[in-house]
Every structure is written in structure tokens, then in C-alpha cells.
Amino acid sequence: MPKMTVDFSRCKGCGLCIPQCPKKIVELDTTKLNNAGFNTAVCVDDDKCIACALCAVMCPECAITVKKEGKE
């Protein structure tokens, strides 16, 4: 299953990833803060992720990892 994951501790919540997502499934999780005090980005629907990595391309912190289907 395609999957984008955000490094919770690295994300600074800048939101540059959010408008890039063609499936509109990246959001800021406003329910919690990381150690640096940021709301971080999350993928809210793994099933819809197509692993296009456009979110990751715009991430200034290199905090997003994208894995394609079938890969570990």
C-alpha cells in the first residue's frame, strides 16, 4: 500500500505539503504538538495515497518519506 509518513519530531508545520496533494489527504493535525511546539502534517487517508511524493518534494525539512506499494 502506498504510504507517506511524516517525521513527527522534524515537521515544523509550515503546510507547504498540503496544497500539493492531488488527493487532498494531507492536513495539519491540530490535536497535538511535537517537542518543538508545532502542529505537524499527517496523511489522513493512507488508502487514497498514490505515492506521487509531491508533498515530499516541497517539504523544506525533508521530513516526509514516501514508500510505494509492495515495498518495505
Binding site: 519530531s9 509550515c14 503546510g15 511524493a53 523544506p60 525539512e61 518519506t65
Partner: peptide
């Protein structure tokens, strides 16, 4: 599009840049 992960030549440490600063992308 291939898998996306941090390049080896970028040290695995947090940067001091402000949120959203594009230095990180470059």
C-alpha cells in the same frame, strides 16, 4: 515517481531554518 527519502548527503539532523523556508528544499 520513485520512493522518496532523505538523500544520503544531507545529514540526518534538524535544521535551524524557520518553518516553510525554502533553504531546506534547495
Amino acid at each position: 515517481m520513485p520512493d522518496f527519502q532523505r538523500p544520503k548527503s544531507l545529514c540526518d539532523i534538524p535544521t535551524h531554518y524557520c518553518p516553510g523556508c525554502t533553504h531546506g528544499i534547495v
